[in-house]
Structure formats: structure tokens, C-alpha cells
Amino acid sequence: MKPPCKECDPLWREEFSVRKAGEAYVARCQFTKFLTLTSLGMFVGNLWILAKSFVSRQVSYPEQAIANLGEIPVGGVKVFQYPNPGEQCLLIRTGADEYAAYSQKCTHLSCAVYYSAENNRIECPCHEGYFSIRDGSVLQGPPTRPLPRVVLTRRNGQLIALGMDAEPES
């Protein structure tokens, strides 16, 4: 492109005298401003997570009787709702005197998981995510987080749900 000279400049250049270098400055500045605002958004997101972590720390779960001892056979499953109605959980009798309870919502895309007695694991039929029956940890598949475990205790011949624990037992 020929360098513009004052004598041969077209009329539009005189009337619309935008300098290309100046334009580049503005574009870069605006882009950086946009990126800085994006960075602010990320920071606000992190602050939101921090605030949520403080708030959810104070959440208290209700005590709820979910089954009688011996109500389900070994290898059997009972579906119950905890901590709120509509939040399905699985109670599994893994041994003569062993019970485990987990949220039925897969941590990948919230499909309903089920207990596979023949493989002795919890399986998600949507994307073949498998969870350990022992602690709810991921055995295989796309889920990256363990199944939330329902904390159980026994009282007066009943199994009582005390709360939810998202981290697997170590």
C-alpha cells in the first residue's frame, strides 16, 4: 500500500481522518479492558464459592429413621428420600451386619445410579460410571467426584440417617 501524502490524499481521508496506528491502540486497550473485566468476573466467582463454603458449613441435616434393621435382605436395596423430599438415596445391605447409603444422583450428570449386586458396585447407566460400594469413590467412568455418602447410625433397632458426607472415608 502506498504511503499517503498530503497532496494525493483522497477526500474521504481528509474528512474521516482515522489513523490506523491509533486504532490499534484503542483495540488493544479495549481488549485488555475486556480481559481485565473477565478476570474480575473469575475473582467474583471464586469469592462466591468461598462465601458458599462458609454458608454450607452451617447446614444441619435432620435425623431421619430410614429403615428397620433386617428389613432388607443381604444384597438388597431400599430407596429413601434424604435430606429433603425428592432427593433420592440408596440404602444397601452389603453384609449381614453392614449397611451403606449414598445419594442416588450421579456426580457426573445427575442420572439415577443403581446397585449392581453381581458386581458389588454402584453403577450409573448413562455413561457407565462405577462407584465403590465401600466408600462411594469413583471406580471407572466420567464422574470425577465420589457419591455423597449418607452418615448412618443404629438406634432402637432402626437405621438413622444423620447427615451427608461428600468425601469418601479414607
Partner: peptide, 16 residues
Amino acid sequence: FLAGRRSAALPGAIFS
């Protein structure tokens, strides 16, 4: 945070 490990929230916010 969704996995229940809330201890990562504070360092995450500070570094962010």
C-alpha cells in the same frame, strides 16, 4: 467445592 472439599475455597479466592 462440589466434591465437598471446602478447604480449597480460601486459597483459590486469594490466588484469584
